[in-house]
């Protein structure tokens, strides 16, 4: 097939790199930074417009109230229990911020998920790491927290030689790493998928017999765009859910 030989897929570094609009290499503003700022503004708007406190909610207050219900019933009560309700503002802003940075993947013209650059997932994972360790230390004390997370009860004493290093690696190293990679790789994969089919679609817009295949990648682009809406929501949900599980686990150790 001649067309496959002529196709030039952009390398991965090209499809997530953007030139700086303002400033230099180290400190500059490019499209990704603009997406961060947009997401912060939108998250703040949800909080401001949602907190009017009218008895009959209208407009944004409706969205905000159902989001609070969703985060409280679907995430916090399931993972942290009643004591976790004071974490609602954090979990809510985490959920909305991740969702807004993800959803820019499919907004026309912008079409760049800010989470596909490792900086944002890494920062969020480190923040969650600090918070769940902080929550554990606050509720059990430093010594008690280390004891409950490194020496799980109900294990024969000689086995602690094996169990303690495993628990250390899984609690303090693998957790933030997997949080980071999950968000980052999901969004990068989605972005590459959309780019691939968009490149194929534009390559088939020619006067040649193989132009009959044109509808296939076009439908794929449409389908995967819809699919990415689901992925953006699901990744925000999963990140918040896991943050809740880790914070809840640090506050209430296994007995």
């Amino acid at each position: 097939m001649q067309i496959l030989a002529e196709l030039e897929f952009p390398p991965v570094s090209h499809i997530v790199n953007w030139p700086e609009l303002v400033g230099g290499d180290t400190i500059g503003v490019n499209k990704v930074v603009l997406v961060y700022l947009f997401a912060v503004v939108l998250t703040a708007l949800v909080f401001i417009l949602g907190s009017k406190g009218e008895l009959v909610p209208r407009g944004m207050q409706n969205v905000a109230e159902s989001a609070v219900d969703f985060v409280q019933d679907g995430i916090i009560m399931q993972t942290m229990g009643k004591e976790g309700l004071s974490w609602t503002p954090f979990m809510l802003s985490l959920f909305f911020f991740i969702f807004f940075t993800n959803i820019f993947e499919i907004i026309p013209v912008i079409q760049m998920p800010a989470s596909a650059r490792i900086a944002l997932p890494m920062f969020l994972a480190l923040l969650t790491w600090l918070l769940y360790n902080g929550a554990g230390i606050r509720s059990q004390g430093l010594f008690g927290y280390l004891k409950s997370s490194l020496f799980p009860p109900g294990v024969p004493i000689p086995l602690y030689i094996l169990v303690t290093p495993i628990e250390f690696v899984s609690n303090f190293i693998v957790r933030p790493f997997s949080l980071m990679v999950r968000l980052f790789a999901n969004l990068l994969a989605g972005h590459i998928l959309l780019v691939t089919f968009a490149v194929l679609t534009s390559a088939l817009w020619v006067k040649a017999w193989y132009a009959v295949f044109f509808p296939l990648p076009l439908f794929a682009v449409i389908f995967f765009t819809l699919f990415e809406i689901l992925v953006s929501f699901l990744q925000a949900y999963v990140f918040t859910l896991l943050a809740g599980v880790y914070i809840g686990g640090a506050m209430h150790p296994d007995h």
Partner: peptide, 13 residues
């Protein structure tokens, strides 16, 4: 969803 998140992490790595 929790289980999917954990399993999926392997594929994403």
């Amino acid at each position: 969803f929790l289980g999917i998140a954990f399993v999926e992490a392997l594929a994403l790595i």
